[in-house]
Design a protein around this nucleic acid. Structure first.
Lengths: 243, 243
DNA sequence: AGTAAATATGTACTTATTACACATTAATTT
DNA sequence: AAATTAATGTGTAATAAGTACATATTTACT
């Protein structure tokens, strides 16, 4: 940014602050990368490399590069940590308390994404990256527990209205698997018949006329998410009903 | 931020970028300040002071100060532009495309707030601040039209679930006034009986046993928002229903 | 052949949503 | 004072959605 340009940025209210002050704030993206394994919702965490938080885990994140769109930064972090790039990713909220980062002023934009754990071969032992069951997480570095909880709440709001969680499942799944996933996310038990009725009304699923294999009981039918809903942003439609 | 602290910030992925690069991004808050006047939803805009956008209006906003919480910055902007501080204010989304600001890299966090126009004496002629009917706005400086639309969509999502829009009305109001406000925000016509039924189920309103005055027809009863709902954040409660 | 464990399915009850019409009240006009 | 105007205030029937709940069926396993 040139000095001339900076002049233009200034308004009457801000003139007292110098260039260095303005631009002395770091901006990061932090990603809540969620997976689903063994009937549990899990989040990808890395060992914090900061002394202040030694022993604690934190969300993967990185600084935004000056020549990189905000959204691109979130996809980059996701790609670097998981190798995946064609996934659901949603911006949730920006966190900017002064003292949220012990080393200085850092504002972070939080995103969440949902991925199929089995579908990506992650080097878990390297880089101290691990999947952690979200229900067992008590404390994280920085304000990352708050960020995690905020993202989980947003996910819970989205989940019944939008077909967002299918990235957490394999391509073909049974209704039981889908119901168990909903139960894991919402933290409640659902009635099987009512669940099926509600899902069937949504008209999200394609009956592919295949059956489960290798289950120690009667196999269920398999379904896929209809193509038109794959990897769509949750932003689609607001759906206000009010006569 | 000290050099030592900066070292701690660096991760393997970011080491190639220098301090100056990291911190060469500006951060602002932009506020969509909404009011309601003459049965129209209006937004407070100021004349853009940038050559690139001469003649266009823009949202009020300002740089975040290094020693100021993000949220505090949004309240400060609101206070500076309207004189009000005890109002509903909600963070909506952060906008960070590279070229969204012609003078350099500026990421902005967007908020919206709702205020009672009559209740604050704004110096409209000074500073080129004006109320503009939202429905007549075709173009704004920067990406502010996108920001405005995003905030309006968020407001429309919130409005039936949370008692947020009462800041747009005087303290005492009739059900007709309230319905007209909903119609202005949602852009639809509502059935009077169904509207009243729905509002009465919410149990937000207090019947204060007063009547309208100075209306050229039969006066209606006046209501107030119950105290427990005043100036609450829309964040309260998610309300998932799924048996 | 019998048992275990899950699938698949329907109905009655309650609650919410929608569409729709008429008598009443106060101010204004004649 | 009576008539007119323009809004308020209210209820019901029909449809749709949400909830609680039980039985027969299918496959794998022993």
């Amino acid at each position: 940014m040139t000095e001339k340009a900076l002049q233009q940025l200034k308004t009457a209210e801000t003139e007292k602050i110098s260039h260095l002050d303005y631009f002395n704030i770091g901006i990061t993206v932090d990603c809540v990368i969620l997976g689903y394994e063994e009937k549990e919702l899990k989040v990808l965490l890395i060992k914090s490399d900061m002394q202040e938080y030694s022993g604690l885990f934190s969300l993967p994140g990185d600084f935004i590069k000056p020549d990189e769109d905000l959204e691109a930064a979130s996809y980059r972090v996701l790609k670097e940590k998981t190798g995946l790039d064609d996934v659901y990713l949603e911006q949730v909220r920006t966190f900017g308390n002064i003292f949220r980062h012990p080393s200085g002023r850092v504002i972070t934009v939080a995103y969440y994404s949902l991925i199929d754990v089995k579908n990506h071969k992650l080097q878990l032992d390297l880089n101290e990256r691990h999947w952690h069951p979200v229900n067992e997480i008590k404390k994280l570095a920085f304000d990352h527990k708050l960020i995690l909880d905020t993202c989980l709440n947003r996910l819970r709001q989205q989940v019944m209205e939008h077909p967002v969680i299918f990235n957490l499942l394999p391509e073909k799944f049974s209704l039981r698997e889908l119901q168990e996933l909903y139960e894991a996310i919402l933290g409640v038990e659902l009635d099987r018949r009512n669940f099926r009725k509600k899902i069937s009304i949504k008209d999200w699923l394609l009956d592919i006329d295949e059956m489960e294999h290798n289950v120690p009981h009667r196999p269920g039918k398999l379904y896929m998410l209809k193509k038109q809903f794959r990897n769509k942003s949750a932003k689609t439609g607001a759906g206000l009903q009010f006569a």
